[in-house]
Amino acid sequence: MIKTIKLVFSIFSICIFSIFSISSLNAREGNQISIVGSSTVFPFATIVAERFAKNTNFKAPVIESTGSGGGLKLFCAGIGLEHPDVTNASRAIKSSEKETCEKNGITPVEYLIGYDGITFSNSNAVKQLSLTKEDIFNAVSAKVYKNGDMIDNPYNKWSDINSSLPAVEIDVLAPPPSSGTRDAFVELVMHSVCKKKYEMDKKTYKANCSALREDGAVTEVGENDNLIIEKLADNSSRFGIFGYSFLDQNRDRVQGSIVDGVGPSMDTIADGSYKVSRPLFFYVKKEHIGVVPGIQEYADYFMSLAVEGSPLEAAGLIPN
């Protein structure tokens, strides 16, 4: 027993020693490409990474799903192997993020891979709804526009908003604020209604039209889109907000509502007639090309797959 104890202690000291000696080595082993970023692009990037690894001699990239904002933050933090090489984003890089990047000597190279639609979906056990952006805004926004004023949202049923809609309680599942889907939804639906319909200036609509209601009609659910689908299938009067790729995989259970006269489909998102859609990107750190092997090849491979008829399209990406 005493010998065992002594053995354990010596192993322990060896361990501590090796930790410190490793820390003087390179921060990344095996020359793997490190990718972070958007959870919307994640499923597409993983498909690309897997095929890339199996069809070339490069090692498989490691991909983390950190959200667009988190990814760009890690990406712009610096040059060196402890920082990621590529970040995925479901929106374009902001000017503030670009500044951080430039300050740290990083040149982000932008690649547009395609588009993703945001759907307002419900169970396909009931009739498909035809909504306008304004209807959706009135259902989910914390404040609504009435007689020239922004008031707290008074609507409880869909029929209160528009008499042609069914008389069921408003019950919407929305993604959390950390999600790119939420950002895009706020921008493409809520801000767009305030800007175009109510003719507000940028400052006013940012202040008044960004919050979702908190009186129980809108529930925030985690980033797990499968959970939303499960919950929609359970309750046919419930609606959920999520990306088109999830609708595409679950068409036997949920349907996307028609928004401003157009339903979400590959074609309508690609030709731009379905208005609630956003571009998807990834950014490559130019300074790392040639340092970590395979980055340029990965980027080219991604672009070669972001076309019609590719496995990415089958997974719900709408190619450029």
């Binding site: 930790i19 410190f20 490793i22 820390s23 390179n26 921060a27 990344r28 082993e29 490190s34 490691v62 983390e64 402890e82």
Partner: peptide, 9 residues
């Protein structure tokens, strides 16, 4: 310490 990301260590 600059240890690698994603490592079991």
């Amino acid at each position: 310490f600059g240890l690698p990301r994603s490592a079991p260590l």
